[in-house]
Write a protein that binds this DNA or RNA. Structure first.
Lengths: 348, 348
DNA sequence: CAATCATTGTGGATTGATCTACACATTGTT
DNA sequence: AACAATGTGTAGATCAATCCACAATGATTG
């Protein structure tokens, strides 16, 4: 493999010193207009690009990294889109590290970014230990996105999951639903006190059900639509079929929609509400009611926090973005009902 | 910001030389078991990780990069998934560079990867000049994914788009359709001879129509579902409404499905066929007939080609993956029809 | 006119890991 | 016993950029 031009080649071509070239490309103080022109001309002739690795040796990479727990979940596209928008214009580049499926989850991806000494990391995986992130944030700015920790070492950007869940529950309850099932991820991802979005949504769901004297019904599944579909199929085949399903995110909700269809039912009989408002949710063939937690905005804010850290900020900032409920055809007034009133009296 | 432990710290901690530590972490020849144990213990105590930047200075990063033209298109998730699968187990890490929207398209993202001296690049953006890629491939292995160039400098992995398009056209023609519109991207993306997937699909579509004596109808749009939806809405509102739409990819097909619904029609009246077989295509509420071009397989193959280049291969390899048509409910036998026979006689 | 200062360019040290060359010890062969 | 072969560890150069200290120059000022 050939080697690319180096700063030395440029210096020779322009007939000046390395240091002079370095000043020009960094736009540093102490360069005459004539020098700048000469060096830039040489850079153009040689098609020179500074090597990030060599810069990293001196402590800067002009790179931010985003770690994604699940490349297949379109919510994360929104976050990346927002992050890129916030970076356009700054000389900073963005790299994405997708987590490979497995026990390590996002840890491996975060290490990929840390090993490359990026100037800042947006972490999304819910399962990475706060202490680990705290350690990491001692070496480079970190923003945890989604999870409700309150570290002094790193910043967070979250949706207001309690408010989002309240929007969903108010919506379903006001439509007359009482048998509302909650479709969520494994116990690991919803561990009480972990502060993951799914943990908060589950806790607030249970609280709302309890306050109304209703029986909570929690269905666990993996992260994929297919797994959600199977889980909901079992739910619909069992006793005490719900009239509404609140899914922890839109991928799970799509699985629920599939299972409802498979069972020969429609969302007229069983309302389905999701979370994230991914793009496909608004498609007329899907028309999924969902909580829009402004993923693009979250990505943008996360990057802004990293940039402000780089500019010198040291105190931790914790932002919450307000969610909005997008009402669509997948949720409607309860029809039918099989002895709910009787059940209610025995429940409460 | 604190600095992480270096190889010098490990050497001091273990009471040996830098070189010895280097040998251990590279698993190089000339290390005794006792030395290995001592060094590994020190590495564990200090939580040491080698800095990729310092390694890059010597020519290796143990990193592959994928450039993605559109993070919102779920087809590319498949490619990334396949790439990650091929890399698991090897010590190599993967980073993703998403292209920011704009004129430069993927160029900027490819530069992001090149600047970081990755050990190999999977390029997907259709608009990057072959000569530019050729130059790049002189410095590091490159695989172009999707586009049908035949460079001697870099490898390619493509779907057989001619075969895929033939599958679609045979399918639609055998269902009795004659007014088949093709929904595709801008002229830039389908430039004849450019070898982009969209260019091949368009050319083969036109050839099939011509051979049958049918009038080709090409509708141009942007890359987003929303733009496709508007374009198809205009098509459906105009004269000579088609009975079938062949979309250049599933994102466009989803837009077409939306427009069909908006117009008060269903896929019983207007068949829609897509390309890529993204995950949502198989959802019962969508049930989109689509060409599965095995994106996971393509990603896996691309990475394997990069690894074999790194292992010393120098001759270019060009792979084609066979597509399969997934027939679903969005395509069916032509019903109705408004004077096709008359039109056909005047056309051919 | 000497002293001070700002401007512009240069040399050399520095960063962390790798790699070559070599030193030294041990083992095996004749 | 002499010598080769092998195994194990170390010193120092190297990679490409940055950054500090300083030199050379010209402008300004008491």
């Amino acid at each position: 493999m050939n080697r690319a031009a180096t700063i030395n080649d440029v210096a020779r071509e322009a007939g000046v010193s390395r240091s002079a070239v370095s000043k020009v490309i960094r736009d540093a103080y102490g360069v005459s207009d004539e020098m700048r022109a000469r060096v830039n001309a040489a850079i153009g002739r040689l098609d020179y690009r500074p090597r990030v690795a060599a810069r990293a040796m001196r402590g800067v990479t002009d790179t931010l990294g985003i770690e994604l727990p699940d490349i297949g979940n379109p919510f994360f596209d929104k976050v990346v889109t927002g992050a890129m928008a916030a970076l356009s214009g700054t000389g900073c580049q963005l790299i994405v590290a997708p987590a490979s499926a497995g026990a390590e989850e996002g840890l491996q991806a975060l290490r990929t970014l840390a090993d490359r000494e990026v100037d800042g990391i947006v972490a999304i995986s819910p399962l990475v230990a706060p202490t680990w992130l705290e350690d990491l944030s001692g070496r480079m700015p970190v923003v945890m996105l989604g999870r409700h920790d309150r570290s002094i070492g790193y910043d967070t950007v979250t949706g207001d999951d309690a408010e989002g869940t309240r929007l969903v529950m108010d919506h379903l309850l006001s439509l007359g639903h009482e048998r509302i099932a909650h479709l969520t991820r494994s116990e690991e991802v919803t561990a009480p006190g972990s502060g993951t979005p799914h943990a908060v949504r589950l806790a607030v769901y249970e609280e709302h059900m309890r306050r109304r004297g209703l029986t909570a019904s929690v269905v666990r599944t993996g992260r994929s639509e297919a797994e959600a579909r199977e889980a909901v199929a079992r739910l619909l085949g069992g006793p005490r079929r719900p009239t509404a399903i609140f899914a922890g995110n839109d991928t799970l909700a799509l699985g629920a929609l599939g299972a409802v269809g498979d069972a020969g039912l429609s969302t007229r009989e069983i309302s389905v509400v999701g979370y994230d408002d991914v793009e496909i949710a608004s498609h007329p063939a899907i028309s999924l009611t969902s909580v829009d937690q402004a993923g693009v905005e979250m990505g943008r804010r996360a990057v802004e926090l990293l940039l402000s850290r780089r500019a010198g900020r040291t105190d931790a900032v914790h932002l919450a973005v307000m969610p909005v409920l997008r009402r669509r055809r997948s949720s409607g007034r309860r029809i039918g009902g099989h002895g709910e009133l009787v059940d209610r009296s025995t429940d409460g």
